[in-house]
């Protein structure tokens, strides 16, 4: 019996903490994508809480009532095969719950994968690449590059282009939204945005070996004006990023924060073209076209990059 009370106490503790004074990072979002995931999480917690309460109530009631010490000596439990009606009930209700959560999932998944809506400006494109055990951020538009820290304007969608100079890493800023993998042979896109100026922590969430634990970075979100000033200042003061310097940065190890003008994208382009190789497997999706046309399509798409 003790365990049930222990469990219930713990659940209430968790519930208090989740809703309580010190908000957990994931449930304290600072941008539209993070807000969507936080909402989904809270919806699922409450839905599941209902399930847990029902099961626990039934469990406590049954185990208390039917314990042997509560029964007469000569009580012979009956033989019951089952009940079609009841079994249909506890199949149908979970099906409804799952259907509800499925709708929530599909809608929210499409939402967090897309560019956040409601902003007038075009997304700011930032290339975020990981190497053992650092993060490199390239701003092609602003022509600057930072290591292990990230400045972003608020109220503007940010389109991260993720890839890796090493093992699979996972780019994650808990307060802005979910994570996504950065891999060596392709570029992934992650759409985020920040509404509230402030400093947030970001990290690599996918294990990459010895220095993994410290592969973190700081994010500072600020109004567009401040951001522009920062860009101007960097362009005026920072040293240019040379190929040699970048090679040096890539070496395994930990580094502090640093800033450069120019980006490594010019001499070490992201692996965007590579995935096209895989993509030409598309001929299995659109089998209508002949081999020749397929080849042309591939060439065409290569020219775009």
């Amino acid at each position: 019996m003790k365990i049930k009370w222990a469990l219930l106490t713990l659940i209430f503790t968790i519930a208090t903490v989740l809703t309580g004074c010190e908000p957990l990072l994931v449930l304290d979002p600072k941008g539209p994508q993070g807000r969507t995931t936080a909402d989904v999480i809270m919806i699922s917690i409450w839905t599941m809480a209902i399930v847990v309460v029902v099961v626990f109530a039934l469990y406590i009631f049954i185990v208390r009532k039917y314990r042997a010490s509560n029964q007469s000596e000569d009580y012979e439990p009956p033989h019951i095969e089952g009940s079609l009606k009841l079994e249909i009930v506890w199949t149908a209700i979970p099906v409804l719950i799952v259907a509800f959560l499925s709708v929530v999932t599909v809608v929210s998944t499409y939402k967090v994968e897309a560019t956040p809506e409601g902003y007038n400006e075009e997304p700011l494109v930032i290339y975020a690449s990981s190497s053992n055990w650092k993060w490199h951020f390239s701003y092609p538009e602003q022509n600057i590059e930072t290591v292990n820290y990230l400045f972003i304007p608020t109220d503007r969608p940010i389109e991260f282009k993720l890839y890796s100079y090493g093992p699979i890493s996972s780019f994650w800023i808990p307060q802005l939204g979910g994570q996504k993998y950065a891999m060596a042979d392709m570029v992934n896109t992650l759409n985020l945005a920040a509404d509230v100026p402030g400093e947030y922590s970001g990290r690599n969430a996918n294990f990459t070996g010895e220095g993994f634990a410290q592969q973190t970075f700081n994010v500072k979100a600020m109004p567009q004006k401040e951001f522009d000033e920062w860009v101007k200042e960097i362009n005026a003061t920072a040293e240019p990023l040379t190929e040699d310097k970048f090679e040096e940065l890539l070496k395994p190890g930990h580094l502090g924060q640093s800033t450069y003008t120019g980006t490594h994208l010019t001499f070490s382009p992201p692996p965007e073209g590579h995935h096209e190789k895989g993509d030409s497997g598309n001929e299995e999706v659109q089998p209508g076209s002949s081999k020749k046309e397929q080849d042309e399509e591939v060439d065409h798409s290569k020219m775009n990059h």
Binding site: V40, I41, T105, S108, G177, G178, Q179, A205
Partner: peptide, 17 residues
């Protein structure tokens, strides 16, 4: 039930790893 929560892709982006 936490497994069901993890099964929701958009939320999993936050739970993963």
């Amino acid at each position: 039930v936490t497994g069901v929560m993890l099964g929701m892709a958009s939320a999993d982006y936050q739970y993963h790893n």
